[in-house]
Amino acid sequence: MTDPVVLALTAGEPAGIGPELCLQLALEIRTAGIVVVASQPLLEARARQMELPVVLHPWRPGKAPRMEAGHVSVLHVEGCASHQPGRLDPAGSGYVLRTLEIAGNGCLSGDFDGMVTAPVHKGVINEAGIPFSGHTEFLQELCGVRRVVMMLATEQLRVALVTTHLPLKDVSAAITPERLSQVTRILDADLKRFFGIGHPRILVAGLNPHAGEGGHLGREEIETIEPTLDKLRGEGISLTGPLPADTLFTPHWLDQADAVLAMYHDQGLPVLKFQGFGRAVNITLGLPIVRTSVDHGTALDLAGTGRADSGSLHRAIRVGEQMARCQKSSSQETRS
């Protein structure tokens, strides 16, 4: 029997639903070893408030995590300023970032096989005077990599993005041959490394309506996207496109693909979230570690009410476990 995968689970914003999602998860038997990286007093307070019968066990590296229902291992992090659900406190922002740093470094050192992140509140972190644009950029800097790729996935669909959180007016200039090449290579490599797909088939969306209509609706496809895709095909990457985005997301094309590469955030993600919101997973590709996340925010209005849906967290953990196992298997094959 193979050893269980050990995943770090950061509890996210203390005032949000992250802490209680971690506790709800602990009520069930798990196939992966989960270590919640959070303030133990915070988790204890939320468990009491919600009357959740969860026993918290301090964890240290090398110790097997508790996996039985009603028990969970916790790596305590100091500095949580408030245990009050629904009420943001900028004084706890440093604590939130320390949970990410501890989990990320634990993955780099081999203490964890991957990390799963509950949602943080970017606004309150910035209010504390700490520049922060998101998990993805934070982990990119922590791991010291040049480029990362955001990919969201449901059981039926994977969508990766060439550009992420940019104003629409800036997207065209950001789609350079260098950026498109880097993102595509990362997507191809990590579909192999983390998902065991031997020869990934990638559909690429055009930027403009009708993929530019032969230059009549924009020339980005002709001048940048098509030449770059041709070069990448010469490297052995299987690419179809650029295709009009309004017809790409149909069974005719999706049945022949392992992933879609969209040019910008709202080109690909509305389709995916319509198809599977609450069951989608946010995955960061291009890191040396496994990182998955939920597809929703902190939901301050639901914190402490017991009405938060843990479906996305369950899915993020299952996908993180699968990715970690696939990476381990790939590493073992490489060594042998």
Rank of each mutant, 00 (worst) to 15 (best):
A316L: 06
A257T: 13
Q322D: 15
R307P: 00
L302E: 05
E333K: 15
F249Q: 09
E333S: 13
V260D: 10
R307Y: 06
Q322W: 03
L254I: 13
G278F: 07
A324M: 02
S330N: 11
G286W: 05
P251D: 14
K273M: 13
Q322L: 14
L272N: 02
A262E: 05
D301I: 08
V260T: 09
V281F: 06
D255L: 04
F249H: 01
R325V: 06
I283A: 00
A303E: 07
R315T: 14
S312T: 09
R315I: 00
R291E: 07
N282M: 11
L269C: 06
V319M: 12
S331Y: 00
A303K: 02
L272C: 02
A303R: 01
L261P: 00
V260H: 06
R315C: 07
T250L: 13
N282E: 11
Q267R: 03
H265N: 05
L302G: 02
P251L: 10
A299V: 11
L261F: 13
S330Q: 11
N282C: 12
D295F: 05
G306W: 02
G268P: 03
Q332L: 15
A299H: 03
C326S: 12
T250D: 01
I317C: 03
G311H: 03
V290R: 01
R315Q: 15
R291S: 09
G297C: 07
I317L: 14
L269A: 09
T298K: 06
P270F: 05
T292E: 13
Y264W: 10
A280F: 11
G311L: 06
G278Y: 02
S293F: 00
Q256D: 14
T284L: 10
P270M: 09
G297A: 07
L300E: 07
G276I: 10
K328P: 00
A299S: 06
A280S: 14
G268W: 04
A280K: 03
A259Y: 12
T298C: 01
H296M: 06
R291K: 08
F277R: 09
D258M: 12
G286N: 04
V319E: 10
L269H: 07
F277K: 04
A262W: 04
I283S: 01
H252A: 15
G304T: 08
V271K: 02
T298W: 07
H265I: 02
D266Y: 13
L269D: 01
N282T: 13
P288S: 08
L272S: 01
R325A: 12
H252V: 11
T250K: 12
L261R: 05
D258P: 06
I283T: 13
Y264E: 12
R315S: 12
L254F: 09
V294P: 00
E333T: 14
I317T: 05
A303G: 04
